[in-house]
Design a protein around this nucleic acid. Sequence first.
RNA 1: CGGGACGUAGCGCAGUCCGGUAGCGCACCUGAAUGGGGUUCAGGGGGUCGCGGGUUCAAAUCCCGCCGUCCCGACCA
Length: 489
Amino acid sequence: MAQAQKITPRAKDYSEWYNDVIMQAELADYSPVRGCMVIRPHGYRIWELMQRALDDMFRATGHQNAYFPLFIPMSFLAKEAEHVEGFAKEVALVTHTRLKATGKAGAQAVAVDPESALEEPLVVRPTSETIIYAMFAKWIQSYRDLPLLMNQWCNIVRWELRTRLFLRTTEFLWQEGHTAHATEAEAEAEARQMLAVYRQFQEEWMAMPVITGRKTDSEKFAGALRTYALEALMQDRKALQAGTSHNLGQNFARAFNVQYQTAAGGLEYVWNTSWGVTTRMIGGLVMTHSDDNGLVAPPKLAPIQVVIVPIWKSEEEKGQVLGVGGKVKDELAKAGIRVELDSRDSLKPGAKYFEWEAKGVPVRLEIGPRDVAAGQVMTARRGGGKAPAKLDGLTTSIPGALDEIQATLFQAAKDRREAHSIRGATKARFLEFMKGGGGFAYGGFCGSPSCEAEIKQETAATVRVLPDPEFRSAEAPRTCMWCNKPSIA
RNA sequence: CGGGACGUAGCGCAGUCCGGUAGCGCACCUGAAUGGGGUUCAGGGGGUCGCGGGUUCAAAUCCCGCCGUCCCGACCA
């Protein structure tokens, strides 16, 4: 275990607090490569739990996993005009395939062999639309081949200027779904369906409330017709884009010649969608729930849901409490609970409490000689509250407690978000709101890029999402809060 | 690339103004006691003071150059 030092309070420096929580929960570490991150076992376990839940949801909606290459020929990026513009500034390139010894010492002992230059450089995928649709073109012949519903779990590289653990790293892990459909309506339905899947996952599993909607043109995915996104409010009152789903129209189908023959015999371009969520969600999880004692993990995604801390003085007591602790562990594990028995002899119980709290374990069971005698354990919840519990009822009381914690975390996050939200914002109220720290402001917006840019310039606020007109309620504002022209949202 | 700060042990830092044996806290190793909310005592290991040059009897400290990192902006899942 690394040094468990006091975590910087959230109120003092949010970025520092965020880094402290991650380091002390042992979720990740900085790597020797600038901008890259090492995900440690505790953090990776969260990702595995996320993967498993999402995979089930993807499969239930008819999608299959596949894997496409890491390298993309540079010319592929050039085929879709907006796409290349969007990613040109942040790609890593492979240009050579060999090194050679120079005979010099130290760092100069090897150099790039100029004779090994590739005829066409390879791009390390910043996203896989191009290479996937190049394959789709081979696989799709007839309307009978549609819809084609695929997903891949992989790593991608975007050479970002500034990086932050989990939120924006040079290399990151994600999932990217790619589909091809016969009609625009089908593609639109797919893009929205996957947005709904993400919402369900983020609210039910991550206990992170989100708002969804369409992105403005300035924030839409490079090459998409429409981009939908999920937005969550973090504890520093800043928005986090937690996932996106794009209706790509026929842009990539035309660029990669993905055509199918219709039942009537004609030739048509397919309609594509792509959608993805990333390890950024782990950052979102940290910023949504954690406190000044460290990580708070929602039970459904907690790598360890229950930790048992035995307490003893003599060797005799040690044997007793470890015996009971071992039995409790086996029973809970058999009931499907992720449980750990901390039998280390090198730390006092109090030190163990702090350590497991920093790692976000939702429930702690303390078992000492007094508990063994009384046939009970002390239960302590991560959010506070200690109570004794009967030994023989644990397999029902613990799952109940975990469900309750999950629900409480979601409600608390929602309450926090609403405490920093205003509805029906006017320009004056909005300016005042932003001066007071901001949050989510709901208001009318005309949709013009100039208003959007002005708002950003003057208040540092960004337009996060536009609700669809069809979801627009009767009391929705009719005019732009900034310029008073008719509102589109 | 523009603005600011900083580089001294694994981490966090003091020492720099005013040159004179490289220090503190945490972590790590050994031993003993301790054990229901960060345990104590004793002993121990670990540093080309970012790099290069200059001044000086003597440089972490003064001077010059370079490199790197972090924070704020532009970019972004």
